[in-house]
Amino acid sequence: MAYMIDRCPSEDSPRLGAMTLYPVAESVSLSRRWFRKFIAPYNPACSVDDCVLMISELVTNAIVYGQSDEVWRVRVEWFREGASLKVDVHNAGFPARVKLRRPDAVDAHGRGLLLVDSIADSWQCGPSRFGGTVVSFVMADAWPT
Results as ranks from 00 to 15, higher is better:
Ile119Thr: 07
Val106Glu: 13
Ala142Cys: 05
Gly93Arg: 01
Cys125Glu: 06
Ser136Leu: 12
Glu70Lys: 12
Val48Leu: 10
Ala62Asp: 05
Val24Ser: 00
Arg36Phe: 04
Gly82Gln: 07
Arg33Met: 12
Trp34Tyr: 14
Arg36Met: 07
Met4Phe: 11
Thr20Arg: 11
Val138Glu: 09
Leu58Ile: 04
Gly112Ile: 01
Met19Gln: 06
Val28Arg: 08
His90Lys: 03
Met1Trp: 05
Ser47Lys: 08
Trp72Tyr: 11
Ser29Ile: 12
Val52Leu: 07
Pro44Ser: 09
Gly66Cys: 05
Met1Glu: 06
Gln124Trp: 09
Val74Arg: 00
Cys51Leu: 03
Val64Glu: 14
Thr145Asn: 10
Thr145Glu: 14
Ala45Phe: 12
Val87Tyr: 06
Arg75Ile: 15
Ile5Glu: 07
Ser10Asn: 09
Cys8Ser: 06
Pro127Trp: 15
Ile119Cys: 03
Ala83Met: 05
Phe35Val: 01
Lys86Gly: 00
Pro144Ala: 11
Pro103Trp: 04
Asp69Glu: 13
Ala92Met: 05
Leu30Pro: 00
Ala83Leu: 03
Arg101Lys: 11
Lys99His: 09
Ile55Leu: 07
Asn43Ala: 15
Gly93Glu: 02
Val134Phe: 02
Tyr42Ser: 12
Ala105Thr: 11
Phe79Cys: 02
Arg32Lys: 14
Asn91His: 13
Asp12Pro: 00
Glu77Gln: 05
Thr133Cys: 12
Val48Arg: 08
Ala40Arg: 14
Cys51Thr: 15
Asn61Arg: 11
Val116Trp: 02
Gly126Thr: 10
Ala140Pro: 03
Leu30Ser: 08
Lys86Arg: 15
Asp104Gly: 06
Pro9Thr: 07
Cys51Ser: 14
